[in-house]
Design a protein around this nucleic acid. Structure first.
Lengths: 141, 141
DNA sequence: CTAATTGCTCTAGCAACTATAGCTTCAAGA
DNA sequence: TCTTGAAGCTATAGTTGCTAGAGCAATTAG
């Protein structure tokens, strides 16, 4: 049995975050000691590790909630999990594409900045006039 | 002079967002009509376009506030703007690197998922055990 | 036994908006 | 001129995923 502090150290999830997960129903309320302190078993630690790992991979809490609920009904669970992961991968890919476009734009902007006063500043100019951009970074994605 | 709706259409910034920018002091309070409606001039439109464009490039509102305030004192403004943009570029690069690692991990997870029941599901397995990952996607960056 | 540490609950705050409710004003047609 | 529908107004609350702080109670090490 672990206290919340031990659990936090074991999983790398901060204490308020663990309590937050309990609050939103992602983690079951654990048993309490006589002095009202939370005590966690091994299953809770595994579940929290799962959550933490999925969060690291960028899964939103709702997706994680769904993944966890799959444990109940085993039928076609893998296909569903696969689908959730696939969507997450698509979202990551889209973000990468968008960030790559932004990176190019920012670099281009910086390459033409050579100090001087504000009126000559390429950074300010580019930000003020979308027409100076090579890409359609906004609006899409 | 533009109403808020026209300004919204002209810049692509949603009406509540425009009011929000005014509320947080990023956009000056415009003149009001006799019936208390906002009316914007061309300068306001340019300022909003600047904000919108910088947001598209991922600049946080605080950085934009700083960029806008540079207009006041012209001295060394470009160097400051350059610095802000440079930081933004570094942040974008870091996010790309992290997302690339996540993408690889998610793809690897999906490549080994072949349907079946939950107990065989690679997606669930990988999420449950960080040791199955090739990269240290979490904790860093 | 006492002091330091850890734990508890509750509230508020962060970014950057978005949505809702309930109202007023404006513009155009009959 | 009246009316109707669109557009505008304020104010509050919700979103996501936490984090920080206040003010206590419980536990543990020396």
């Amino acid at each position: 049995m672990l206290t919340i502090g031990k659990l936090s150290k074991a999983t790398g999830v901060k204490i308020p975050t663990i309590r937050y997960y309990e609050q939103i129903g992602l983690l079951a309320s654990p048993v309490r000691s006589s002095g009202n302190q939370r005590h966690y078993d091994h299953a809770a630690q595994e579940r929290l590790a799962f959550i933490s790992h999925a969060r690291d991979l960028g899964f939103p809490l709702d997706a994680i909630r769904e993944l966890l609920s799959l444990s109940d009904r085993d039928e076609h669970a893998c296909a569903t999990a696969d689908d959730i992961a696939r969507r997450q991968l698509a979202a990551v890919k889209a973000r990468i594409a968008r960030l790559n476009a932004l990176q190019v734009e920012l670099q281009r902007m910086l390459d033409h900045c050579h100090g001087g006063s504000l009126s000559d500043c390429r950074v300010i100019q580019v930000l003020g006039d979308h027409g100076l951009c090579r890409h359609d970074h906004g609006r899409a994605a």
